[in-house]
């Protein structure tokens, strides 16, 4: 690993002051240390966030939940308020990585997690995300694990997070602090599509630090589930995943939130499917129909066309599983 200067500030202000174009914040280190070892990330300065506090989970008066940037994935998953009000988030967190990694990984670090695209992770291979303008090796390469939604001709790398898929479905705000003060970014706007600039992954300026993620108030009476489909039963990234949150009146859907992982270049809200489902009968046939809508604009490549059908099945099954809880009287 290339050496770097480690800066260990004790306040958010000092942390922001220490940040530069050639630096990186470190939380749990599960992405950054890995990528520094591989030579994919080579910051001159690493700014340690471990002395900044930011490790509280706070219920706000308006019903929202404010999560400190440094709250670990393990702790967030078992927080009583998360388990009660946002079980889909708890399930998503626990489906990600392993116990050891979740103990280290932080909330903000998970939001900032980099793609697992093997070409991105190999500095010997061309990659527009790692080195803009060098080309995309995955486009004509082994792209079985790559995205079918939100892609561009320059990048087809998937966003790897499970936590972010649940947050996209729940609705959230990313709170950041920089030299010019604090800013609130809607979660759906935080991660950027690759477009012509796959190296730009998020709406975070070079001097800004994520301090909190605030979850929207839970939908009253909602049922939800997180379904993750992958090559092995545990400790593996999603080929397709779905966070589904639904409210019902009788047998009719009154609100629906559907987010996808493993198939898209960012945590993906399936808004067309959601809109089509509201007001309809909550039947398996209807779920299969709206699932088709989510992949209308899919751009499959040589090895990942299976993800279109797999993703559709993930939506249909997640919705079915969530609604089944309602019929069994298990709210949320």
């Amino acid at each position: 690993m290339q050496s770097f200067e480690l800066i260990r500030p004790e306040s958010v202000k000092d942390a922001i002051g220490a940040q530069s174009e050639r630096s990186a914040f470190i939380g749990g280190g599960t992405t950054l240390v890995d990528l520094m070892k591989l030579g994919v990330m080579q910051p001159d300065h690493v700014v340690d966030t471990n002395r900044l506090g930011l490790d509280e989970i706070e219920a706000l008066d308006d019903g929202r939940l404010k999560i400190g940037a440094r709250v670990s994935n393990s702790r967030l998953a078992i927080d009583a308020r998360v388990e009660r009000d946002y079980p889909v988030l708890s399930q998503a967190l626990l489906s990600g990585a392993s116990t050891g990694l979740r103990n280290m990984a932080t909330t903000a670090g998970n939001v900032m997690q980099r793609t697992r695209c093997p070409y991105f992770r190999d500095p010997a291979k061309p990659c527009n995300k790692r080195e803009p303008g060098t080309g995309c090796s995955a486009m004509d390469g082994i792209n079985r694990n790559h995205a079918v939604l939100g892609t561009s001709e320059h990048c087809i790398a998937t966003h790897p997070s499970d936590m972010c898929v649940a947050m996209a479905a729940i609705g959230a705000t990313v709170v950041v602090e920089g030299r010019k003060g604090t800013r609130e970014i809607p979660f759906e706007d935080f991660h950027l599509l690759p477009g012509d600039h796959p190296e730009r992954e998020h709406d975070l300026r070079s001097d800004e630090l994520i301090t909190h993620v605030v979850l929207d108030a839970p939908l009253e009476g909602a049922v939800s589930t997180y379904l993750k489909l992958r090559d092995r039963a545990s400790y593996e990234f999603a080929l397709a995943s779905c966070a589904a949150i639904v409210t019902l009146e009788g047998t009719k859907v009154t609100a629906a939130r559907i987010a996808l992982g493993g198939v898209a270049t960012k945590p993906w809200r399936a808004v067309d499917a959601e809109a089509a489902l509201v007001g309809e009968e909550a039947t398996a046939k209807m779920f299969e129909q709206v699932a088709l809508l989510a992949f209308q604009r899919a751009m499959p490549l040589e090895h990942n066309a299976f993800k279109v059908e797999l993703g559709q099945q993930a939506i249909a099954r997640a919705l079915r599983d969530a609604v089944q809880q309602a019929s069994q009287g298990e709210h949320q």
Binding site: R8, V46, D48, N50, S74, L101, M104
Partner: peptide
């Protein structure tokens, strides 16, 4: 008391 992957943890921290 918590299990962690020591290969990804900076010793200084």
């Amino acid at each position: 008391g918590q299990a962690i992957n020591s290969c990804l943890s900076l010793a200084i921290s």
